[in-house]
Design a protein around this nucleic acid. Structure first.
Length: 285
DNA sequence: AAGGGACGCAACCGCGTACCC
DNA sequence: AGGGTACGCGGTTGCGTCCCT
């Protein structure tokens, strides 16, 4: 098949992004509205990066609507629940956690949640009790993490698989959905969800239905809706990005915004982030 | 104080899919 | 219909930071 590389490797910069590069990329996307494909972005933005790298940088770091910091307990719970239903489909999971990226969730899963579950005697892949815990009573049932109300509230201080201070709440009909669920597929997941790795049991699950509906708002009231208020520009103090006189000069509240909402610039919380980018490049400095 | 290992995050790689010609 | 291109996704890696000895 000989698929061509996404970009010419020669002369393409790799590695951590600098503040200057961030500025250029953000400036281009915000200023031009990204009226072209990612492949053309680096050239037009004056970056020696491949388009793929630009897209990743934007979606994982520069996007205005991104939350930062550790996942909250609620978010973590939701991730566990969603993972039990969907497996490693991080993008699907991320889609249900506003402001979080698939990469972020994936990293958090691998570095935090996975370990927690293992300490609790739960297989992070299948969400079933680990071998040593199979004889555990109800608390360690397969539904422990997939139940809608499951909670992981305490850091297990156990060592060697011993469970201590484990706090899993089961207070709903967890047996109907989680009990007989097939293990989520953990790899080579088909991006098409139609039937994919979800059991028919899960298809009946309201949560799964919600998960698979792209346009529907999440049921949690967890969303920071402040950004929806377009009149709220109180947070633009210090805003001096490029030559804008108002935030909206940069945002360009024009039709492209509507056309390119995927960039996330419709989210006014970016204003604060823009000034942040202005002052630093985040983790790279 | 210094060295080494563990940890966490950002970025890269390669594959699958959708779309276009 | 088939090939080429671009994008999105999940797995993996690299490297900086933290922590322990």
């Amino acid at each position: 098949m000989g698929r061509q590389p996404c970009c010419d490797k020669l002369g393409v910069k790799r590695g951590p992004w600098t503040a200057e590069e961030d500025r250029k990329l953000m400036g281009f996307i915000l200023g031009n509205g990204g009226r072209c494909c990612w492949r053309a972005v680096p050239k037009l933005a004056g970056l020696l990066r491949c388009g793929k790298s630009c897209r990743l940088r934007w979606t994982n770091y520069l996007r205005p609507d991104l939350k930062r910091g550790l996942l909250t307990d609620d978010e973590e719970r939701l991730v566990v629940d969603l993972h039990a239903k969907l497996g490693n489909r991080w993008s699907k999971i991320a889609a249900k956690l506003p402001g979080r990226t698939d990469n972020e969730i994936k990293n958090h899963w691998n570095t935090h949640i996975k370990k927690k579950l293992i300490k609790m005697g739960i297989d992070p892949v299948t969400h079933e009790p680990l071998d040593g815990d199979r004889k555990q009573p109800q608390q360690a049932s397969p539904a422990t993490t997939s139940a809608h109300s499951s909670t992981i509230t305490a850091e297990s201080k156990s060592v060697d698989g011993q469970q201590e201070d484990k706090h899993i709440d089961i207070d709903k009909d967890n047996t109907s959905t989680g009990g007989e669920s097939s293990p989520p597929e953990s790899s080579s997941m088909n991006t098409n969800d139609s039937g994919g790795g979800i059991s028919s049991n899960h298809d009946q699950d309201p949560l799964v239905k919600w998960l698979l509906e792209e346009e529907e708002d999440p049921p949690t009231g967890d969303i920071d809706e402040s950004w929806l208020d377009l009149t709220n520009v109180d947070n633009v103090e210090g805003f001096n990005f490029i030559t804008a006189t108002t935030p909206w000069d940069v945002i360009g509240v024009t039709d492209w915004l509507l056309d390119y909402q995927d960039y996330g610039v419709g989210n006014p919380t970016f204003l604060a982030d823009v000034s942040m980018v202005e002052s630093s490049s985040g983790s790279n400095l």
